[in-house]
């Protein structure tokens, strides 16, 4: 199952709710304002590191770049994908849950 999150974790609870309901082996893709959660040294870093023990985390590169966040700022283990990679993730997983 693929989960997408498009909200900043510092403003809304979408990511938190998502991480509470992901099953091991799922993938979580951060898009739009959600990408700001993917950076090293944030207040939610530990939560993401914990989530990555059982899930894969991805971030949409174009949204990251648009917000002036360089890829070298990303938390280790988070993979960057472009829109084509987003499409591949959707195709690879049997269902998609968008945490809006």
């Amino acid at each position: 199952m693929l989960h997408t999150v498009n909200k900043s974790p510092f403003e809304r609870n979408s990511l938190n709710t998502c991480l509470g309901l992901v099953k091991p082996g799922s993938a979580v893709l951060l898009i739009e304002d959600g990408v700001v959660g993917a950076i090293k040294g944030t207040a939610i870093e530990d939560q993401l590191i914990q989530a990555m023990q059982s899930c894969k985390l991805y971030v949409l590169g174009p949204d990251l770049a648009a917000r002036g966040l360089a890829e070298d700022k990303l938390l280790d283990g988070i993979q960057v994908v472009d829109y084509g990679g987003f499409v591949d993730l959707v195709a690879e997983h049997t269902s998609v849950q968008s945490w809006l």
């Binding site: 898009i31 472009d82 829109y83 084509g84 987003f86 591949d88 195709a91």
Partner: peptide
């Protein structure tokens, strides 16, 4: 909201991949 822009980019990428 960015929703329509994101969807547009997604659809374009999907079509390019032959979906």
């Amino acid at each position: 909201h960015q929703a329509s822009d994101s969807a547009y980019q997604f659809v374009k990428a999907a079509l390019e991949k032959g979906h």
